[in-house]
């Protein structure tokens, strides 16, 4: 597609200036609070409280030291990683197994399944806190990581299912047909032919679910109660009391917690964007 007509070519100067003014204002409105906090993490407590200047007078790493040693942030990060990686793998497996037959075979209830999953996509999670808490307790999964992983798998299944289904629909049929001719059965086709070809779809879903669950707060708070199982998001709730007026420590901890999904995003940008837009547009 040639796009020179819609690009900088021949644009009047005043319009270019207006564009950049709007962009600059957005950069400021979106990023200033976050940048201020990250910079403050390098200050001393007294310096933050004196509210003098945006940049630290001296780049001070004490806050980061406190964050990593004083409250066991590394353990919370490890917990988050376990839960998110567990949930992402489980969701990928379950949604691929469900989306494949729906995308490829004719059977009764096929459309119904798609419709019901699409309805699940718009379920407002916060409305469900009472039953989810009780189900987790009844199943004996309260305060277990596996309970939280299963719950996340359930909640994020609809979006993963729909993205996987769209991906399978976009795969060419011919290879599977050849496999059927060779006498391969359903499971052989799925595990040896389709899944190896589905790297992009699988990684899109996995990254998306990893970021969603990494950032999830409400159900992590409801399911995990013991201190040593807390995820990073749950830990944030206790930062204020744990850090007890150690503002650089708290800000450094927040900076580290924010950094993980940002790194995932910056490294895997294209995949994340594709996943989020695919999920959103399909919704």
């Amino acid at each position: 597609m040639s796009d020179h007509d819609r690009t900088a070519w021949g644009r009047p100067l005043w319009l270019t200036i207006t564009y950049y003014a709007i962009i600059a204002w957005f950069c400021f409105a979106m990023l200033f609070p976050i940048l201020w906090l990250v910079l403050a993490a390098f200050k001393t407590n007294a310096e933050i409280l004196s509210a003098s200047g945006y940049f630290p007078r001296q780049w001070n790493l004490g806050g980061f030291e406190d964050a990593l040693t004083e409250i066991g942030l590394l353990r919370y990060l490890a917990n988050s990683f376990l839960v998110s990686a567990g949930a992402a793998s489980l969701v990928v497996m379950v949604s691929a197994m469900a989306a494949y037959p729906v995308a490829r075979f004719q059977f009764r209830g096929r459309n119904l399944i798609t419709i019901i999953f699409a309805l699940g996509l718009v379920m407002p999670f916060t409305a469900l806190i009472v039953p989810e808490t009780l189900i987790i307790r009844t199943l004996g999964l309260h305060d277990t990581r596996i309970g939280l992983i299963l719950l996340y798998a359930g909640l994020f299944l609809p979006i993963s299912f729909l993205v996987m289904r769209a991906f399978f629909l976009s795969l060419p049929l011919s290879i599977e047909e050849a496999a059927i001719m060779d006498g391969a059965n359903y499971w052989q086709i799925l595990t040896r032919v389709v899944l190896p070809l589905s790297g992009p779809g699988i990684s899109t879903v996995a990254i998306m679910i990893f970021v969603f669950t990494w950032n999830e707060f409400l159900f992590a708070t409801l399911v995990l109660s013991s201190e040593e199982k807390r995820t990073a998001q749950v830990a944030i709730r206790f930062f204020q009391s744990q850090f007890d007026f150690n503002l650089p420590g708290m800000f450094a901890a927040i900076t580290i917690v924010m950094l993980v999904p940002i790194l995932v995003f910056v490294v895997l940008q294209e995949r994340v964007v594709r996943g989020l837009t695919a999920g959103a547009v399909k919704g």
Binding site: A98, P101, L157
Partner: peptide, 13 residues
Amino acid sequence: SLLPAIALFATFL
């Protein structure tokens, strides 16, 4: 193949 998804959906949604 559909069963795990249906079970999770039924239980948690």
